[in-house]
Write a protein that binds this DNA or RNA. Sequence first.
RNA 1: ACAU
DNA 2: AAATGT
Length: 231
Amino acid sequence: MYIIPKLLKNYSPKRFNLAKKKKQKYYVVWFGNPAGIYDSWEKCKKAIQGISGAQYKSFETLPEAKIAFQKEYVDYKGKNTKKKKILTSEELQRIGEPNLYSIAVDAASSGNPGKMEYRGVDTQTHKELFRQGPFMQGTNNVGEFLALVHGLAFLKQQQSDRMIYSDSRIAMGWVRRKKCNTKLKRTSQNKKIFELITRAETWLKNNTYTTKIVKWETKAWGEIPADFGRK
RNA sequence: ACAU
DNA sequence: AAATGT
Ligand SMILES: [Mn+2]
Ligand SMILES: [Mn+2]
C-alpha cells in the first residue's frame, strides 16, 4: 500500500488520537496457560508467565489474530511483521559516508524508564571521551539529550570544531529548542537526573556554539560508534 | 509514520 | 515483548 510522502511528513499521532493511548494490539498465545487471544499485554503476560517455550505474538487487528490462532506458531515465528527497511543503493549513495572528524554520543537504559547512562566517543577511533551514569529512573531520550549537551560542552571546552553525531531525532530536537521535553515523572530516586537536565538547559541558554549536530544514519552505517552494544 |  | 518521544 502506498503512503503519500506529504501525508507521511505531516503524520501526527495526536491527530489520530494515539498520543496518549497505547495502540490497541491483539496477542495470540498458541502455547500458554491458557492459549487464546488477548487484548492487552497484561493479560497476555499472565497467560505466558512461567511457561517455558511459550509461543505468542502480537497483531494489529483482531481478524489477523483470529486467523493466526487457527494456524501454526511456526508460520509466524521470526516473521518480520516489522518492516526492517533496507535502503536502496540510491539511498545509500545519497547518504554517503560519515564524517570521521567528529564525536558520536549515545545513551542506554536498562528499562525505560530505567537505569540510564550515556557516553561520547571519537567516531574514528571509538575511544571513549566521556561517560556518565548510570542514573536511576531515567529515560532513553533524556540520556540522549544529556549526552548531546555534554558533547557540546566538551567540544567547546576543547575548542574543537568537530561535529557531533546522534542517532536520536528526539534529542536533536530538544537541543535545537534548548528544551528537554521529557514526560518523566519526578521521583526521589531521579533527582540527580532532573538536576542534570536543568544544568544542560541552562548551559544551552548561556553558551554559544557552532558545532554541527548531525543525524547518525544507522540504517546505512550500522550502530553509532558510541552505542553500548546491548541490543 | 519516523527516530530511539 | 515493552517504553520514550515528535
Ligand atoms: Mn541511541
Ligand atoms: Mn545505542
